[in-house]
């Protein structure tokens, strides 16, 4: 048996915040900009499995001594939609569901709401 220790992380959102900060650093380096980062625009779909509160908490925890220290996290949370093939309704949903909220048919498809994106980075000039 070979023991192997991974880097310490203690929740899902912490590794997402880590990825976010890493990607911001890559993008800023590539742009050659040196101004302080003021805002980050992030998309966290309602069905992405990520809790925005936990993501904010993890971000604040990891931000000190990185390029994003002091930056504000703007999160947009696109909703998902349930399209029912039986009653033809289109309903906004917050959770993955099994049946149409209108007619309880199981002939449904879930659209959108899964995005987890770094949209843009705002820096001082």
């Amino acid at each position: 048996m070979t023991p192997l220790a991974a880097s310490p992380k203690n929740m899902h959102e912490l590794s997402i915040a880590e990825a976010l900060i890493g990607q911001v650093e890559e993008e800023v380096e590539r742009s050659g900009q040196t101004g302080r980062i003021t805002h980050l625009d992030v998309t966290v779909g309602r069905l992405s499995g990520v809790s925005c509160d936990s993501l904010r908490f993890a971000f604040e925890l990891l931000a000190p001594n990185t390029l994003v220290e002091g930056a504000k996290l703007n999160i947009t949370e696109p909703v998902a939609k349930c399209r029912c093939h039986h009653c033809k309704s289109l309903t906004e949903i917050d959770d993955l569901i099994m049946e149409c909220p209108k007619c309880s048919s199981r002939e449904i498809s879930i659209e959108g709401g899964r995005d987890l994106l770094l949209q843009s980075i705002e820096l001082e000039d």
Binding site: S31, G35, L117, L118, S120, L123
Partner: peptide, 8 residues
């Protein structure tokens, strides 16, 4: 200055 990243 705004950098558009649009990255997953």
């Amino acid at each position: 200055m705004k950098i558009i990243a649009a990255r997953k």
